[in-house]
Every structure is written in C-alpha cells, then in structure tokens.
Design a binder for these strands. Sequence first.
DNA 1: TCAAAAGTGTTTAAAGTACACCCATGA
DNA 2: TCATGGGTGTACTTTAAACACTTTTGA
Lengths: 226, 226
Amino acid sequence: MLVAVDCIIFGFDGTHLKLLLIQRAFQPEAGNWSLMGGFVQPDETLPKAAARVLKKLTGIADVYLEELSAFSHPERDPIERTLSVPFTALVDIQQYETQITDDYHAGWFDINKYPKLIFDHREMVEKAKARLRYKAAFHPVLFELLPAKFTIPQLLNLYEEVYDISMDKRNFSRKILSMDLLEKLNEKDKGNSKKGAWLYRLNKKKYKANFHKVASIIPNPDIHYS
Amino acid sequence: MLVAVDCIIFGFDGTHLKLLLIQRAFQPEAGNWSLMGGFVQPDETLPKAAARVLKKLTGIADVYLEELSAFSHPERDPIERTLSVPFTALVDIQQYETQITDDYHAGWFDINKYPKLIFDHREMVEKAKARLRYKAAFHPVLFELLPAKFTIPQLLNLYEEVYDISMDKRNFSRKILSMDLLEKLNEKDKGNSKKGAWLYRLNKKKYKANFHKVASIIPNPDIHYS
DNA sequence: TCAAAAGTGTTTAAAGTACACCCATGA
DNA sequence: TCATGGGTGTACTTTAAACACTTTTGA
C-alpha cells in the first residue's frame, strides 16, 4: 500500500482564514486544485514527511503540525491504493515565500470559498477546519497563525473569524491576558487605528508549559463544532 | 509499506481499568505479550480493520473505537517496514467471550501493571491511556466501559479509577444527572450494598446528540493528562 | 473637532466546590 | 441494632457574562 501525507495549510491575513492550495502538476487530475502532499520516504516518519512537504511548498520550517485521522478508503485514489494521513499546519502567512507561488501554481483561498479539490481533499479540509475549531476552543493554538508580534484586537479578529462569531472585546482581552502567556512590548501597531494598539509576544516557555491546560476562550464552545 | 492496526482494548471489572493482551503466535516475538492487531485488507478502511480485529478477539461488535495517531518509525518492525494505526476500544468486559482466552492466549491486565510488550506497543498503550483521560474529561465516553444497566456509584468508581482520584459523590451524581443522559430504571443493584443502588441506562439518542458537548466532570481536569 | 478604534471597571448570574446528615437493609 | 453503602440539600466561592464610558490621535 502506498502511504502519503497531505497538508491542510491554514494562514490568517488579518481578516480571513486562508487555505493554501496547489495546482497538481501530474496525472491523474493534473491541473486541478489539490492539497500539497507527498509520499512517505523510506527513512521518514509521518510527521517528518509532513514537515518536509510543508517546507518545500512554503519555505517555512518549525511549524505547528497536527496529525489527523487517516483517510483509508480503498478507492480513494483511482490509480493505486493509497493511504493518506492529513496534517493541519498553522503558519504565519507573512513568512510564506511568495516566489513559491509560481513554482507550484499555489494560491491562498478563503476557507469558506475554495475551488473543487481532487479525490477526498475537500473532506480533509472540512475535517481540519472542524478540528481546528475544536482544538482552539480549549488550547491556545491560534497564536501560531499570527506573526511574532501581534495586538489583542488582531487576536480577537482571528477568533471571531475562526468561529464566525462576534465576541466582547473586554471579556476577551481579560481572558487572554489572564492566561499569562503574553508579554506586552513597548511598541504599538498603528496599522488599524490612529490611537494604535499595544503589541504583545508569546512567552514561549509559558506557552509550552501550559499548552495542555484547558482554556475556555470561546463562549459556549459546544456549539461551534460537530 | 505494510499497514496494520493495533487495538488497545480497555475494560472495567468494577474496580480496575483493564487491558486485553494476547500472546503472539508467530514470529518475530512469538510467545511474547502484544496488542491484538492485524494487517489492513484490500477492501477495508482502517476503522473496519480495527473492528474486524476486535470482533475476532473479543466476540464483541459495535464497539466504541477511536483512531489514534499513527506509529510510523521506519524501524519499528524489525522484519519489514510497517505502519501501524492504533485504535482505542472501550468494551463492556462482561460481554467478553472468555472462551477466546484459550484460542489467543489472551489475558486482561491491570492498566498499571501489565507485562513487557513487543515493538512499540507499550508506547501505544500509554498514548491510549493519556488520550482516554483527555477525552473522558470532556466527553461522556466512559459509559462505554459499563454494562447497559449500571449504578451511579459504579460510574463514580470508574471515574475515580481512570483518573486515580477520589471525588465527592454528591457533586458527582448531581453533575452526571444534570447532563440529562441517563434514565432511571425501576430496579436496584444489590451487589454492593444492602440498601441497593438504583440502576440507570443511557438514553442513546441524547447520548449521541450531546456527545460533542463539553462536560467538565472531573475537577481540575488539566492536571490529569500530559 | 470628530470619527474610529483602543482600552478599562463593575454588576449580575451561573457554575463549581465544600460540606453533613438521613435512609434502607441484611447480617 | 448496627454497620455499610446509598441518597439528598444548602451555603459559599469562583468564574463567566453582560454591559458603558473614557482615551488617543490623525484626518
């Protein structure tokens, strides 16, 4: 049996949650939109294969990668039986090397409006989206989608986009800051307002140490995943 | 690449959380303790393969099965490269057909004291245990380990065993009943006390409908998983 | 000077936690 | 009659949710 990995790569452009797709270069389905994937090599584990594929497409290393349940339907690949293990990748879209777009005919698409995909890739994307909502309701993973320095209002926008809700900014910032993961910097970001918003950065140590802890950031998180 | 599934089968004997293991019948590692596993057949998905393996070993069908992350180290199987996907199975130990014990040289072991296992099976078991704790802290999966009719004190014992804590029975029963998943029967179980404890059964509809909801049953759930 | 986003504080409601007593029964 | 496990109720603490005003500043 062939074994492959496919990467569901999420990014956040400040307004919308985005998905990175490529136009497939070979048969079957050449020219059609697809997730970036690849076969697992003899010396690789699955996570290593996913990291390799991601690096090749985005130029980014050391990325948040989460393995999802395998896709194993016997006829999912029409040519030869292939098991595929999807990985969710959360990247800082600003670090994406845009020259790659040409090499792979890649493109970022709004998560709510992306083209028809080959095989069962649509199902993978929807699974990854549901999983992201589930995970982010309890664990501070969404920081992975932001640049190293970010503002609380940016973070709020991200949560509102991922869950398609609007949240109370006062309760939100209190909750986020009470998690004690952020360090306030002496800089402001004036990109979005005249007053400017304070920039923060993650305290990586605290982030790692507290990652497994459950933080209920979203009101009524139940209703946001199936 | 060969693709296999391995089942981490949990049961509850009323006191301890148990793990079902077999003595491997073939080389390599013949005679040593192992998880029950098998290769994925040409017409099977992974979950189907896991269900088949489980049925063969326990005689039980329609069991709670949850796929865990794949084990993919290139040298995990010394003979030939084999990818294995572990599945957690939660079974009602009373339904286990004991005659099978002889066929497979199977045995139930205390989850805290089980023999040396082949390959990376110990790691699978530990992952499954951690995952069970995580999952059960938020979702009512532990019912799967009990018979169709059970009492609140039995359920309490189960939670206390899984998390190795003691809980307040008053708060526990209030919490459980407020989830509105149980139906009180007109029977008592007198196995554990003179007074007898009321028997309940799951309302399957409500169970399925509310499964995704998050119920914080364990106090300080954070501290119980890594 | 005013529009637009940033930032802060208080009140109320709900959920979680701690804790103590009575009940039913068989030995 | 008493020891054993089963069952319930209440006060208190903590956490979440709702909500309104002041600040800064560039156009």
